[in-house]
């Protein structure tokens, strides 16, 4: 998978209440959730971002609630992937399960700025920053997680499993 886009940079501990405030959780409509993505951090975020843009953040991205509405809002808004120094556990699972690509890379956070253009090659395990010509390595995902992603998320993976067991 190759992903290319420009960076929106966030700090540490971006929590799920910031990604999608609880007051909007009386719906699970993905488009509506997306329209409030990151609203309490930057009211204009959703207007300013472009399809395919990449979020780059610090430690513990997605901490807080188990709400899958958070990665769903990010994905539906058109963000192509999230790169962070580290992810909160439930967010990490949820992102993989719904097929939002995420990568851990402290170097990318430390050596990239808002607006830089990145290219992520998840097969080779490299992130390139075209704005400053730097390259960062990413650790390959465990096989089991790759099999979920290559199936297109946990739902598709489970469908296959159901068929196999029949």
């Amino acid at each position: 998978m190759i992903i290319k886009g420009s960076i929106w940079k966030f700090g540490d501990n971006i929590d799920t209440d910031v990604i999608i405030p609880a007051r909007y959780l009386n719906t699970s409509d993905a488009e509506e959730l997306a329209s409030h993505c990151m609203e309490d951090y930057d009211r204009e975020f959703i207007k300013k971002m472009k399809q395919g843009d990449i979020i780059v953040a610090g430690e513990n991205f997605g901490c807080g609630s188990s709400r899958e509405h958070a990665p769903l809002a990010i994905k539906t808004a058109g963000i192509s992937c999230v790169i962070a120094k580290s992810f909160a556990r439930i967010f990490y699972r949820n992102a993989i399960n719904i097929g939002l690509p995420i990568f851990e890379s402290a170097e990318t956070f430390e050596q990239s700025k808002q607006g830089d253009i990145l290219e992520v090659d998840s097969e080779v395990g490299v992130i390139k920053n075209f704005s400053n010509n730097k390259e960062f390595q990413i650790n390959p995902l465990p096989d089991f997680i790759r099999s979920i992603i290559s199936a297109g998320g946990l739902v598709e993976y489970t469908k296959k499993e159901v068929r196999r067991r029949k």
Binding site: N94, N97, L154
Partner: peptide, 10 residues
């Protein structure tokens, strides 16, 4: 253990 909705659906 707390999980998200896709995990729970599965």
């Amino acid at each position: 253990i707390g999980v998200g909705s896709t995990d729970l659906g599965v």
